[in-house]
Nucleic acid binder design. Structure first.
Lengths: 223, 223
DNA sequence: GTCTATAAGCTGATAGAC
DNA sequence: GTCTATCAGCTTATAGAC
């Protein structure tokens, strides 16, 4: 699989991600996300995408020129909604409140759309052949901006001393774990499915643990 | 890929994992680990395994009957050394010391053998088709034993109140992240490689953060 | 044990009828 | 837009010479 420029990716997003929710393209993208998430790009089979979408295989190729283009269309839909709940954070935000919202949103995503997390994990494991440029540009500046806010919190004394970038990595990994390693977590917790009770228990643990790691305690906040 | 019984897996381990380090089988297993780690089982290509091992393709099939058997042989070698540093932990262990050793060993493994972590991640993402039985038996009892020790620490008041299983998951995810998402972490930290300085900084962060999350502080210990 | 040649089946992609 | 038929190339695996 050849590396692809960011402008090419962005172009493809504009073509692919704004499909009306009920459209056939959107339907195919859902099927493709599940297939690529489970098997990775090279392991994915166009026939299985077609089967998942309950369509003949040539219909997939009619709507998406190639396997590569289908993959990129799926990938870019995921990137958009990746870190939404931490997007609006600023120096004025309450650290405990902002971190809690971020953790709970990431875990909710892991429950509601585990395939998205698994597809992203596959892309990273593979060495990010299609996202290297994204990592070095928009994702890096996203992290740097949030890291700056955390540093400002540290200077203001409203949060303990922590490495901001590695704190973000820890929140990503600890939450995405429940999507990527769901089969393991459920088996070892002796639970049948990732239902709301499991979600709540896990979110409460993570919020308490991570806030404590940041030198904060969960507290009553003005509503 | 068909599910395979645990006894079958264990049988294959006994056949495959005790190869002398310099043997051809061991050499092939190293090449196969890298290939399966990067592309997953379905995405892996026997030709690329042969290329990585610098051998003609039929030689791979001479030493391992099928792609599936080669995969299982690689997988089982990884399982053996998965959680070594937390194996000997007991009620009498010092919690801070034991957790620190576990975190540092897992992170060291992530640095020295990222392919092992990535292969395991691929297997879990795929739904653990070859490790379901392992998850429900030996891995579950390993986790339950360690969780019991952590509960005893809590009762003895030598550690704060935490969900023991989820603490283990958090340590796994936070450390394995630096293997599975290495390309992302290095890019966002603006580092070229996962060298010893990165290892030390990351380990120090994780130990401090996680011990604090457990209500412990890193302290001088008798040497 | 090693390697060349090749079989048998699968995979991405397209042609062309409707 | 949709679907049947099909191609060219690739993939796992083996046969058989050395």
């Amino acid at each position: 699989m050849k590396s692809i420029s960011a402008s090419r990716i962005i172009h493809m997003v504009n073509e692919a991600h704004r499909q009306p929710p009920g459209s056939i393209k959107a339907h195919i993208l859902v099927a493709a996300k599940a297939e690529f998430a489970q098997y990775g790009f090279e392991g994915a089979r166009m026939q299985r995408v077609a089967d998942r979408a309950a369509l003949p295989k040539p219909n997939i190729h009619y709507h998406f020129k190639s396997k590569q283009q289908l993959y990129l269309a799926v990938l870019e839909r995921i990137i958009e909604s990746w870190n939404l709940a931490f997007d609006q954070v600023s120096q004025e935000s309450d650290p405990a409140e902002a971190l809690e919202a971020f953790i709970r949103q990431k875990l909710k995503q892991a429950q509601q759309d585990p395939a998205a997390s698994r597809l992203f994990a596959n892309e990273m494991i593979q060495g990010a052949p299609n996202l290297k440029h994204y990592l070095n540009t928009s994702m890096r500046s996203w992290v740097q901006d949030r890291a700056l806010v955390i540093k400002q919190w540290m200077l203001a004394g409203t949060i303990g001393d922590v490495d901001p970038e590695r704190l973000i990595f820890l929140i990503w990994s600890a939450t995405q774990h429940y999507a990527d390693f769901q089969v393991q977590a459920l088996s070892l917790l002796n639970r049948a499915e990732f239902d709301d009770p499991v979600l709540t228990e896990t979110a409460d643990f993570l919020v308490t643990f991570i806030l404590r790691g940041c030198g904060l305690s969960p507290r009553d906040r003005p509503s």
